[in-house]
Amino acid sequence: MTQMEAPRIDSSRIAEVSHGLDRSEVESRERVFSVRDLSVAYHGNVALENVELVEIRRRIGMVFQKPNPFPKSIYDNIAFGPRVLGMKGSLDERVEQALHQAALWDEVKDRLKDGALGLSGGQQQRLCIARALAVEPDVILMDEPASALDPISTTRIEDLMHELKRDYTIVIVTHNMQQAARVADMTAFFSVDVEEDGSGRRGILVEYDATTKIFTTPSDKRTEDYVTGRFG
C-alpha cells in the first residue's frame, strides 16, 4: 500500500488499518462497503460499529480498479453524487469544476449529454475520479486505478494524482512498485502472515515511511526483499 501525504490520517493509528485487511477481502464487495472488518482510523476515531456508513463513504471517495461509469450521460455521472446527497449550489458549476479537476473538461465539454460508456477506458477512469471529487471527499481511495489501462492513460492518471494531491489526501493501492515510487510521498508495505493455528491468512503492516526511505533504505528485511525484487 502506498500513501501520499497524509496530514489528516493519524499515522500512529495506521497499523489498525491492517487489521483484517486482505486483498481478496478488500475486493469483495460486501467488505468494501460494510467496512466492518476494516477498523479504519479516521480523524483519530476507529470507525467500527455505530458509524453512519453512508457518511463514511461520502467522505472517503473511492476509485475502482476497473472504470465503472454509470450507464448514463457524462453530466449525470458527475451530478449523481451531489444530487443524492442534496448538495446546495449550482449543479452545472459543480460538474464543470469536477471535470476540470480531473483534467477531462476539455475533452468532453461539448458532449456532456452523451453516454459515459462511449468514452475510452482512460477517460472513463478520469470520469470516475471526477465523480468522486464532485462530492468533496476528505480522502480519495484508489484501488489499482491504472491496472486496467494502457501506458498512456496510466501516465495521465498519475499526472492527475500529482495535481490532486495538493488538495486531497489520496490513498492508492498498487502492486506496481514503479508507480508507487513515482506518485507517492509516503509508502506503507503490507504483507500477509499465515496464522499458526491454521485459521487463515492475515494482513499485516510491515513498514510505513517516506517513499524514498522505503525504496532505498527500508528498515524491515521483508520490505527490502520485496523492493529489490527477491519476491513478489
Binding site: 453512508v54 454509470f70 462530492v135
Partner: peptide
C-alpha cells in the same frame, strides 16, 4: 460495479436501487 460506484459516492441503498439499478 454500478452499485459499488453509487455506494462509494455516499448514496443510500434506496437511492442506489431507485436511481441506478432500476433505470439500468
Amino acid at each position: 460495479s454500478i452499485r459499488q460506484g453509487a455506494f462509494a459516492l455516499g448514496a443510500t441503498k434506496w437511492q442506489v436501487v431507485w436511481r441506478q439499478v432500476l433505470p439500468a
